[in-house]
């Protein structure tokens, strides 16, 4: 327990020195990757339609990560924007989705080898966005606003291909508890926003009414003097509150570049 409290204290209260993963000798540095990607998207929001809409999605993903305290801790900040266009099974109506995600995480190194690190930690996550149905009249939109505390885990593996160092990473983020915008079963946005009936539209969420998991796998490959990052991101979101079910599932393949900043 003391260890957990100490860990949380270090994660969220102290301001550690920056360091960089790739080079132990660099004491302060930052690793920033920006990726763009496309993939598949599936959406079902029973406020809009009882059916699953499927289509494509695109994402811009920016991540900043630092290691510090002799590589035992890492701090990570992710901003991602994703949009999607999906169609109902009859292919005569579209849902357009747009979401912005921001997360701020601290990780602690559980185990480490010469080329392998396993980290776990917590992140604060904010999501805002909407799903817009092109055919619905008075209920065309389902807004999503979530603030969560996540369990986050991260594994890094370094190996060589043709003598070049390659870093493979796997990360998962699982919301544990939070609050989200949860309108009542049949309430209209006219009643919420025009008439001002905001009572009970913000609800506590946890596993009893929401399950979400975001995982991504990236591979950093040095190309000349730069680093190419290839990635795959899976995002799963499910909520069931006030008899309104929402499922959002996306798989995105991404590509981008990683920049290293020396701060010492």
């Amino acid at each position: 327990m003391k260890r957990i409290i100490g860990y949380l204290w270090v994660c969220f209260v102290t301001h550690p020195l920056l360091a960089q993963y790739h080079n132990e000798e660099i004491q302060r540095g930052m690793n920033e990757g920006t990726l763009i990607g496309i993939g598949t998207s599936q959406i079902r929001d029973t406020y809009l339609s009882p059916f699953n809409y499927a289509g494509w999605g695109a994402r811009i993903f920016n991540e900043r990560m630092t290691f510090f305290r002799e590589m035992r801790f890492s701090r990570q900040q992710i901003i991602s924007v994703d949009i999607s266009s999906t169609e109902n099974p009859a292919e005569n109506v579209n849902d357009f989705g747009a979401f912005v995600n921001y997360s701020f995480a601290y990780h602690y190194r559980l185990q480490a080898g010469a080329n392998f690190r396993l980290l776990t930690g917590a992140s604060a996550h904010l999501m805002g966005g909407f799903i817009y149905n092109t055919r619905n009249g008075n209920n065309p939109l389902s807004a999503k606003v979530d603030v969560d505390l996540n369990f986050s885990f991260l594994a890094l593996y370094r190996f060589r291909i043709n003598g070049r160092p390659v870093v493979l990473r796997y990360q998962g983020d699982l919301p544990l508890v939070g609050v989200f915008f949860a309108p009542h079963y049949g309430i209209s946005y006219y009643e919420i926003f025009n008439a001002g009936n905001m009572a009970d539209v913000i609800k506590l969420n946890s596993f009893h009414n929401k399950f979400s998991l975001k995982t991504h796998v990236t591979m950093d490959i040095p190309v000349h003097n730069a680093t190419l990052r290839l990635g795959y991101l899976s995002s799963l979101y499910h909520s069931d509150i006030n008899d309104i079910k929402t499922h959002i599932l996306s798989n995105t393949f991404m590509i981008g570049w990683v920049k290293q900043f020396m701060l010492r």
């Binding site: 059916f51 055919r135 009249g137 006219y190």
Partner: peptide, 13 residues
Amino acid sequence: GFPFTSELPNGWR
């Protein structure tokens, strides 16, 4: 009655 819209499995509104 404030009306909502939904759909049937065959795509009818």
